[in-house]
Amino acid sequence: MLSLAAAVAAEDVDHGRQLAERWCAACHAVGTEPTRFRRAQPFVAIAARESVTRDMLVKFLLLPHATMANNPLTATDAADLAGYILSLRK
């Protein structure tokens, strides 16, 4: 099992995009193209916040949240998803 730090370092952005499309797209706009209204912030808006870091996103994604679906993310999945989100930063 990878440590959190190792998982963050080994991110797979394409896998993160696949996870976003499968698990997050029902509530978030997960790509760069304009989409219909969603219930949660677009990933582009999250990525645009200068205060958001990869480590912060990974930790957030691994915690249970009442407003998010309870998807069983591993540390590697969370790192991949965080890497994808931050890849949308311009």
Score class of each variant (00 low, 15 high):
2 L>S: 13
3 S>V: 10
3 S>I: 09
4 L>F: 02
5 A>S: 10
7 A>L: 12
8 V>H: 00
9 A>N: 03
9 A>K: 14
12 D>Q: 01
12 D>A: 08
13 V>P: 00
14 D>A: 15
14 D>N: 12
15 H>I: 00
15 H>Q: 09
15 H>Y: 15
16 G>A: 14
16 G>S: 11
17 R>Y: 03
17 R>V: 00
18 Q>R: 14
19 L>I: 03
19 L>V: 07
20 A>D: 01
20 A>I: 04
20 A>Q: 13
22 R>P: 07
23 W>M: 07
23 W>V: 00
25 A>K: 12
26 A>Q: 14
26 A>E: 15
27 C>R: 06
27 C>E: 10
31 G>S: 01
31 G>H: 01
34 P>E: 09
35 T>E: 15
35 T>R: 10
38 R>I: 08
40 A>S: 11
41 Q>M: 06
42 P>G: 13
44 V>G: 00
46 I>V: 15
46 I>H: 05
47 A>L: 04
48 A>V: 00
49 R>N: 08
50 E>C: 06
53 T>Q: 03
53 T>P: 01
53 T>C: 02
56 M>N: 06
61 L>E: 05
61 L>C: 06
63 L>E: 11
63 L>F: 05
64 P>F: 09
65 H>N: 07
67 T>N: 08
70 N>V: 14
70 N>K: 11
72 P>D: 13
72 P>C: 03
73 L>K: 02
74 T>Q: 05
75 A>W: 04
76 T>I: 06
76 T>M: 01
77 D>I: 00
78 A>P: 01
81 L>I: 09
82 A>Q: 01
85 I>L: 01
86 L>S: 02
87 S>I: 08
89 R>F: 07
90 K>M: 06
90 K>Y: 04
90 K>A: 14
